[in-house]
Design a protein around this nucleic acid. Structure first.
Lengths: 168, 168
DNA sequence: CTGAATTTTCAAAATATATTGAAAATTACA
DNA sequence: TGTAATTTTCAATATATTTTGAAAATTCAG
């Protein structure tokens, strides 16, 4: 396999995985392209390599910057903006996880809490059963959140120790 | 909030969450409806309560059964099939996780391994950097997989102990 | 300032995904 | 078995999402 082929497959695979988990294909592909690149790339280079429009490239880059996993890089003597991806896998994996949790999971947890409280005093058998179901989901997600927060706060060394403890 | 309102909000919330994480809205809503129901429901009842077509209801139910989080329930003297959701939250959450990992993550891990191996002997600076990036992702996902497998294998008591260790 | 280079926006078009509904297949009771 | 109830399938349709591309806004060197 030639290097260019390998990179292309990496980009395609990343795009497909993103789609299946609710991350836009172009966004995932731009991320992969930048990960696979040694040097910073301009919007034009990204457009050309991925064969996507300027608008799409621009919006994808902006989203990755918003996620905090791609940075702007100024190149002396060039007016264009260049972009580089955060190369530390653990760092960007966590940033994506934190962002998605905040944007998608947290509001749901709020609603679950509301529903759980609103049905707390329901005396009907049906109402009590429903309350219990919601409460169960709520408790589990809160436990998972506690763990996630601990993991996200850890430094690399702590994390390895914690995960080691988990396995043995 | 009336019980019916609370249930409806639960169904809507669940549907929205599913969509954002790559699970079909109808599938998520059928799951929520069954979770919120004390008694088994027939396809007709599901169609009626969610205002969806027979085809959609049928396919959604089948997918939930394939996931292993909804069961068929025969009711004596009735020819219709009835359905109930697995009410043990930990159980169905794990089943969904295992299923998605197998269907979507495992193939990606295979490809990452291939790419990593194919670029191993590349002597160019660019090739080595790319190899390292892919290798890093591969190693992290393998570590996460090991942990996930351990977690999925645990019984409830083991799991609590492990998670407790992780937090302290 | 001026104006060319660059970035951003967003309505329209293209694409992908979900849903419908009726016909075909299957089931199980008489 | 015959037949009516039920389930399944899938082409057609509807809906949602993504992508384009050109116009507007912004930036910055001269």
């Amino acid at each position: 396999m030639k290097l260019d082929e390998a990179k292309q497959q990496f980009i395609d695979t990343w795009g497909a995985l993103g789609s299946e988990w609710g991350i836009n294909k172009s966004v995932a592909q731009v991320h992969a392209l930048l990960l696979a690149s040694t040097k910073p790339l301009s919007t034009d280079e990204i457009m050309e390599k991925l064969v996507i429009s300027r608008g799409n490239a621009n919006m994808s880059i902006r989203q990755l910057i918003e996620y905090g996993i791609v940075y702007k890089k100024h190149i002396a003597g060039d007016r264009k903006e260049y972009f580089v991806a955060e190369k530390d896998v653990l760092k960007w994996a966590m940033k994506i996880a934190v962002m998605r949790k905040k944007k998608e999971l947290d509001p749901v947890m709020e609603i679950l809490k509301d529903i759980s409280e609103a049905t707390e005093d329901d005396k009907t058998k049906d109402g009590q059963a429903f309350h219990q179901t919601v409460k169960d989901i709520q408790v589990l997600t809160e436990q998972l959140e506690t763990i996630a927060n601990k993991v996200f706060q850890s430094n690399r060394a702590d994390l390895l120790i914690k995960l080691f403890k988990l396995i043995v």
